[in-house]
C-alpha cells in the first residue's frame, strides 16, 4: 500500500506542494531536450542521406569542439577560430566523401555503418595526437555566450535560469528550425530525400550523390560543433563528451531515424520525461535512473508506433 502511495500519490503531492521546483525541473528538462534534439539531428541528417547510423557523430562533437578551442589556444580570435572550425568540419565532410563514401556507393548499409565505426576510432586517435588528452575549457565568454543567471520569485520559491541554458535552448531551436527549412523547402532537401529513397534512382535523374553526401556530412559537422560548444560550456571539452551523443539513441528510437520533427519532439519528450522521473520517482529505485528510463519512454512509444513518432511507415506488399 505504501509503495502504491509512493508511486501514484506522493510524487504528485510533491509537485503540487513545490510548484517552483516543478517549474525548475521542467525548464531543465526543456533545455536538455533541445540539446538532445540537436544531437539527434546530426544522426538524422546522415541517416536520411545514406540510410546509415553515423557512429562517428559523438566523436565529431568532440573533434569540432577541440578544433575550436585548440585554434583559439593558438592565439586566433574566437570568432575567427569559429569560422576556421566550420571550415575544418567542411574539409572533414569532403574528405570523408572523397576518401571513403565515394567508393561505397550502393554497398550494403552495414558496410557504411562499419566505416563510421572506423572513422570514429581514426578521429579519436587523430584528435588525441593533435590536441592531447587533457580536458579543455570552452571559450564561452570569448564567443559572446552569456554567463550568469537570473532568479525568478514564483510560487513562494525560486526558479533559476542560467543565461547559458537560455542561449543553448534558443540557439538549438534556431539551428533545428533552420535545418528543417533547409532540408524540407529547398532543392537540396528534395535531392536529399531522393538519395535516401534510392541511390541509383537518384543518380539516374541527375542528382549528384557525392555532393549530397558532402553537404549532409558538413551539416552534421555544424550540428556537432554547435553541440560541442553548448555541452562543452556546461562541462568541459574532453573525449568523454562523445558519450553524450548516446543520449540521442532513445530520441531517435522515439522520434524516428528519418524525421527532423521527430528529433525535436522526441528530444523534448525524453528530456522532460527523464528529469521528471529521476526527480520524483528515481528515489524509489535508488536514483541514477534517467539513463535507462529514456529508453523506457522510447519503448513505450514504440509499442504503439513501431516506426517512431514521425518515422516513415514502411508497408511492403508481397
Amino acid at each position: 500500500m505504501g509503495l502504491l502511495f509512493d508511486i501514484f500519490i506522493n510524487p504528485f503531492v510533491e509537485m503540487a506542494s513545490g510548484l517552483d521546483f516543478l517549474l525548475q525541473v521542467l525548464w531543465e528538462g526543456f533545455v536538455s531536450g533541445t540539446l538532445y534534439a540537436l544531437i539527434a539531428l546530426g544522426f538524422v541528417l546522415i541517416f536520411k542521406a545514406s540510410g546509415v547510423f553515423n557512429f562517428a557523430q559523438g566523436i565529431m562533437v568532440v573533434f569540432a569542439a577541440l578544433t575550436l578551442v585548440g585554434l583559439h589556444a593558438l592565439g586566433i580570435p574566437a570568432f575567427l577560430a569559429l569560422i576556421l572550425a566550420v571550415a575544418i568540419m567542411a574539409l572533414l565532410a569532403v574528405t570523408v566523401e572523397r576518401v571513403v563514401l565515394r567508393h561505397l556507393v550502393n554497398q550494403p548499409d552495414i558496410i557504411l555503418f562499419m566505416v563510421t565505426i572506423g572513422l570514429t576510432y581514426f578521429l579519436i586517435g587523430f584528435g588525441e595526437l593533435v590536441f592531447g588528452g587533457d580536458p579543455k575549457s570552452m571559450i564561452t565568454e570569448e564567443l559572446g555566450l552569456p554567463t550568469g543567471s537570473t532568479v525568478f520569485d514564483v510560487f513562494d520559491g525560486i526558479v533559476i535560469l542560467q543565461h547559458l541554458d537560455v542561449a543553448a535552448a534558443v540557439i538549438s531551436a534556431i539551428m533545428v528550425a533552420g535545418l528543417a527549412v533547409f532540408f524540407n523547402k529547398t532543392r537540396i532537401g528534395r535531392a536529399l530525400r531522393a538519395v535516401a529513397d534510392d541511390h541509383q534512382a537518384a543518380l539516374s535523374v541527375g542528382i549528384s550523390l557525392n555532393q549530397i553526401w558532402a553537404i549532409v556530412w558538413f551539416a552534421a559537422g555544424i550540428v556537432a560543433l554547435t553541440t560541442g560548444i553548448m555541452w562543452g560550456a556546461k562541462s568541459d571539452v574532453s573525449f568523454a563528451l562523445q558519450i553524450v551523443a548516446l543520449k540521442a539513441l532513445p530520441v531517435l528510437i522515439l522520434g524516428g531515424f528519418t524525421s527532423i520533427p521527430g528529433a525535436i519532439v522526441g528530444g523534448l519528450i525524453i528530456g522532460m520525461g527523464e528529469k521528471l522521473f529521476e526527480v520524483y520517482w528515481g528515489g524509489l529505485l535508488g536514483g541514477g535512473v534517467e539513463g535507462w528510463f529514456a529508453y523506457v519512454i522510447a519503448l513505450i512509444f514504440l509499442l504503439f508506433r513501431p516506426q517512431g513518432l514521425f518515422g516513415e511507415k514502411i508497408i511492403e506488399r508481397v
Binding site: E28, S32, V244, K275, E278, V279, G282, G288, E290, G291
Partner: peptide
C-alpha cells in the same frame, strides 16, 4: 555516461 549530464542529479 551521465558524467557530463548531471542536471537531474543536482535537481535532486
Amino acid at each position: 555516461k551521465e558524467m557530463q549530464n548531471q542536471s537531474s542529479h543536482w535537481l535532486n
